[in-house]
Amino acid sequence: MDTPQPSGTTKRRITLDLGRPLLTWGARPTVTIDGVGHPAQWGTGTWAVADDGSTRIGVSCFNRLWHFGTASGTVGDADGFAYRSSALPLGRGRLTARRTAG
Rank of each mutant, 00 (worst) to 15 (best):
R84F: 07
D34K: 09
G53Q: 07
T10A: 09
A82N: 13
L88E: 00
H38K: 11
G80C: 08
F81D: 09
G53E: 03
V75L: 03
T3P: 13
V36F: 09
L16N: 05
G26T: 02
D77N: 07
R28C: 10
R99W: 10
T10S: 15
T24G: 13
L22K: 12
Q41C: 11
S54W: 09
S54H: 08
A78H: 06
M1N: 15
R64E: 14
G73M: 09
V31C: 05
G8C: 04
P39I: 09
L90D: 13
V75E: 11
T9R: 13
G102E: 04
T24W: 08
G73A: 13
G19K: 01
T100D: 15
F81P: 08
D2W: 14
A82L: 05
L16P: 07
G45E: 11
A48T: 03
T15A: 11
A48K: 04
T32V: 12
A78P: 09
G8Y: 04
P4V: 05
S60Q: 14
G53L: 02
W47L: 11
D17A: 07
M1V: 13
V75T: 10
G69F: 04
T100S: 15
P89R: 02
A48C: 05
R12F: 02
T44V: 03
L18M: 03
D77K: 04
G80P: 01
G93C: 06
V36T: 13
G58W: 05
G37C: 12
G53C: 02
G35S: 06
S85L: 01
A27V: 08
F68Y: 11
V59G: 04
S85W: 09
A40S: 09
L90S: 10
P21W: 03
I57E: 05
G35K: 06
G91M: 01
A97I: 11
G45T: 07
Q41D: 15
Q41K: 11
A78C: 00
S54A: 12
L65H: 14
S54C: 09
R98V: 12
